[in-house]
């Protein structure tokens, strides 16, 4: 099986879909000739033709609005928002149109669109190239939100997202495009080759939306993470020496509540880890769900380790980024509580 980094795996997913489904097409800022600023669409215009993968005007609202119209007509548009930070001009389209079209038209119209966007920090990208906006999509019913943590999942989830009949926000943790990153920024950079999840089949396969992955089995505490934080969690667990179970959600909507509940009922403790700032973050929803469903199994308060409630600050990348040390401290705290 070939080894791929996450960029190649995503490219392969798009290539497969353009090949197999004539109703798919890709557009977004700089995705055509250039292949996107992160090169995810590289070579697709050359291979599949100008109308299958092309540049869009700098108008995120326009990109999503156009995709919705195409989707309603019967196509399966896949659009790229250059950075998730720039998805906000499209928020109205996503919330008021994509998410509600099926409901308000009683199924006459729907928007089977996929909106890809690189997201997250760890790259010294400053306030507007580092944010993690998943919670603002999770809050909107009618939208699905998917976040892969390795190349294999990235490809399978992206194909599943494209084939899904509902609008899907597909957030790509850009810090792990080229290799896994566990938050230990002073260590040598890793590449994907040889790492779990880097062997990716050439052809079509799917990883279903709404199925979490059990990354590590453990007895004492459940750690819930997604995206880059899955790798940070592994480092944090190792550093703490705690026998933790690690769940990679893979999609936050639909949410694999069964896997979460089964694990927390077993361990009796839970730490939630995400990069997004803490207040109103997705960790709050997870914490509430667990409290509602596992209250009598809990041995200590649920902890959230997250970005601080500030914008993402350039000089303070590693002070802001919730790294393995902060997770390890939380794990130890929950065990002592």
């Amino acid at each position: 099986m070939p080894t791929m980094n996450m960029i190649q795996a995503l490219n392969s997913a798009l290539d497969v879909m353009l090949t197999e489904d004539p109703d798919t097409l890709i557009f977004g800022e700089d995705v055509g000739y250039f292949g996107g600023v992160f090169r995810v669409t590289e070579g697709l215009q050359r291979k599949h033709g100008l109308t299958r993968c092309f540049d869009a005007p700098i108008s995120e609202g326009g990109i999503v609005a156009t995709a919705i119209g195409m989707g309603a007509y019967g196509l399966r548009p896949i659009v790229e928002i250059q950075f998730a930070d720039y998805i906000l001009p499209a928020y109205d389209q996503l919330v008021s149109e994509a998410a509600r079209l099926r409901y308000r038209s009683n199924g006459e119209f729907f928007a089977p669109i996929t909106v890809r966007a690189p997201y997250g920090g760890g790259i010294f990208g400053g306030q507007t190239h580092s944010q993690s906006p998943e919670a603002i999509f999770a809050h909107i019913t009618g939208l699905k939100t998917v976040i892969p943590s390795n190349p294999y999942d990235a490809k399978g989830l992206l194909i599943a997202a494209i084939e899904d009949d509902d609008p899907v926000i597909f957030l790509e943790p850009k810090r792990i495009y080229n290799g896994p990153f566990d938050g230990r920024y002073d260590q040598l950079l890793k590449v994907w080759a040889g790492e779990p999840g880097a062997e990716v089949p050439e052809g079509r396969y799917t990883v279903p939306l709404g199925k979490a992955a059990l990354v590590r089995k453990g007895a004492d505490v459940t750690v819930i993470a997604y995206g880059t934080m899955v790798h940070v969690a592994q480092a944090g667990i190792a550093e703490s020496g705690v026998d933790a179970e690690l769940i990679d959600l893979r999609s936050i909507v639909p949410l694999d509540i069964e896997t979460i509940v089964a694990s927390v009922r077993k361990t009796g403790r839970c730490v939630i880890l995400h990069e997004a700032s803490r207040f109103g973050g997705f960790g709050g929803e997870l914490s509430a769900l667990i409290q509602e469903r596992c209250f009598y199994h809990l041995k200590s308060p649920i902890e959230r380790v997250a970005g601080w409630d500030t914008p993402y600050p350039h000089a303070f990348e590693w002070d802001y980024f919730p790294g393995p040390k902060r997770l390890a401290a939380a794990l130890i705290r929950t065990l002592e509580a």
């Binding site: 990208g125 400053g126 306030q127 507007t128 190239h129 914008p311 600050p313 350039h314 000089a315 303070f316």
Partner: peptide, 12 residues
């Protein structure tokens, strides 16, 4: 983004 940065290291 150093200690004398007039924008206190907060901006790209």
């Amino acid at each position: 983004s150093n200690a004398q940065d007039p924008l206190k290291g907060r901006q790209l």
